[in-house]
Design a protein around this nucleic acid. Structure first.
Lengths: 343, 343
DNA sequence: TTGAAAGCGCTACCAG
DNA sequence: CTGGTAGCGCTTTCAA
């Protein structure tokens, strides 16, 4: 049950392989009748080009590499879904690897992609990553590369949401709704994403001349458990917060759970704003107010930037997608409410 | 900035390519000194074998294909995560594609994998799939294949949880906790998974001599919205259910939301048992009682079966993993409680 | 319009 | 122990 090759087709028809090759790819220099015959036989025999032979010739694959910190985390999974769909549409397959949020694995994953001669690489950095030489090495080999979601200040194309500004808006909203002591829950400080979001928070406080309280800022890890402990610590403060901004996926659920476990009322005693998928908001009660990110769009744009590079446009581009505050039930209403719908 | 090949190394050292090939792969027939020199230079020059050339020679890749209905759905994402991790450990990369729960896409994905000459394919069937010829075609080409989670009654290796039995247990539990009218929410009837789970439900009712009420069984679609409408319809019955078994991921969240929106108390007015990831249970309040599936294990076992086939063991195996009822807060206690911990 | 042949990088086989 | 060479399937260049 061998696969049929161009040579097989050529033999059956008593012609040369190169003719078959030309005929099948629609190139000039084959008589219409012969081409017809060849194409027909190819179809009959279910001929499929051998991708390795093609790749060996051209030294590239119709495959792109994707590196994420955790595929099982719905945030990344949604991004990957669109990325994969767009790639497929453009004739690419996706090799997806999980760095388990560790720098060493990330380096290994990226190198593996390079060894696989992928057409390009899309990376979401791990929480640990602070050395970017593995990324530069990719660039030096002229392999297209794009960073998304968790990026770094490097001269590579990127796709993110408006991290700083979205938190600024959230903070302003909380202040306007009467919050006096707003806490900020983030990931590792070395992550640009956390840094940027924290920056938005601090900026907003400064703008409203609200003193910054160090004990209200907790930036450790984006894990559920980390969020749980941090929130508990916040609630144990002599002067606990009356609002919490949970700046990454699981932290909102963790904060929500911690607050409920203390028997506090949301939002009467304390407000919560998260950065999670919207369906999570749908199943909590009260429903979590959150910053809505267009995850699919992040994936789509990331592929677009990569595809541009594959097609020869090597200019570095930075895309910032607007994320919007979606008011639900874990925040108080403000009387003179600003319209956030188009800010 | 060209990649260095065996030939390059050979030239630099004034030896033959075949010697380099042997040296690098640790084969017999190279003097220790020469081997040392070759290995050293290879390392210096960052030599990496060209996977296409190797694949072209051997007509196979260190790549496995994974087809899932929806990567962004946390249930599948968790399975894929372990699958990918195990594959990586064994030296395989994963090409992951999303069938978007449609039969046509599934067929296309599978065929694409075959064209890519993957070493094996792991598939979770789409909701639509009722024709399995695309799977048999894979088998006929001697390409290893394994089904998981949503399988079919075909002569191929599979990995699933104890679908029928777990629902039987759930139903018994609900009956024992006083439920009189237990509703069953499932996916499409053509899915074996739904059929099996429904079977467990019906079996349990029969065992307890409880009449089956057709209007309490809703099997349409595994989507959130479908669950929402179905639950609403159940609640609108003249004689609504006092317990709901939501037999697939999102259906539990949907049922939960629908019930709350009607102002009913859980579990006092109505009990709910779901089949979701455990972290979903953690963020609802009351926390959802659910059937806990070891998703990671499904992924791990699926890879194991595939790897067995890749290594020449083509016997068809069926693995059934035990899923256990995890009591939380959306079901009532039963006084003389059975111990489910090791059933 | 068609054919012949070289070559992509690697491995395997046969000679020396 | 080492070298030479053919060939995996495909494309491309040159010749007929």
């Amino acid at each position: 049950m061998k696969r049929v090759s161009q040579r097989d087709i050529a033999k059956m028809l008593g012609v040369n392989v190169s003719t078959v090759s030309r005929a099948l790819r629609g190139l000039e220099g084959v008589s219409p009748e012969l081409r017809q015959k060849i194409k027909l036989l190819a179809k009959e025999q279910a001929y499929r080009p051998n991708p390795f032979a093609v790749s060996l010739r051209y030294d590239t694959t119709r495959t792109i590499g994707v590196v994420v910190p955790d595929v099982s985390f719905s945030h990344f999974a949604h991004i990957v879904k669109r990325l994969e769909a767009e790639a497929k549409k453009a004739g690419y397959m996706c090799i997806i690897t999980d760095s388990d949020d560790k720098y060493e694995n990330e380096v290994e994953c990226v190198e593996h992609m390079v060894n696989m001669h992928v057409a390009g690489i899309v990376v979401c950095l791990s929480q640990d990553t602070s050395d970017y030489s593995h990324l530069f090495r990719v660039r030096e080999q002229n392999i297209p590369i794009v960073l998304f979601d968790r990026i770094a200040d490097v001269n590579l194309s990127t796709v993110v949401i408006n991290d700083t500004d979205s938190v600024r808006q959230v903070t302003h909203y909380l202040i306007d709704s009467g919050a006096k002591r707003i806490a900020f829950l983030g990931g590792a400080n070395r992550m640009k994403q956390t840094a940027d979001r924290k920056h938005g928070y601090l900026e907003a406080l400064r703008e409203r001349r609200i003193p910054i309280r160090k004990e209200l800022v907790k930036c450790h890890n984006t894990s559920f458990n980390s969020g749980l402990t941090d929130t508990m610590e916040l609630l144990d403060l002599p002067n606990p917060p009356d609002a919490i901004i949970a700046a990454h996926g699981l932290l909102a659920s963790a904060a929500f759970k911690a607050v409920l476990s203390r028997g506090l009322r949301i939002p009467e005693d304390i407000s919560i704003v998260g950065y999670m998928s919207d369906w999570v908001s749908d199943i909590t009660s009260p429903r979590l107010t959150f910053v809505k990110q267009n995850l699919r769009d992040i994936g789509g744009k990331a592929f677009k930037l990569l595809n541009d590079q594959i097609n020869g446009d090597f200019s570095v581009k930075h895309i910032v997608l607007k994320a919007r505050l979606e008011l639900r039930e874990t925040t108080k209403k403000i009387l003179d409410q600003e319209d956030f719908s188009d800010t």
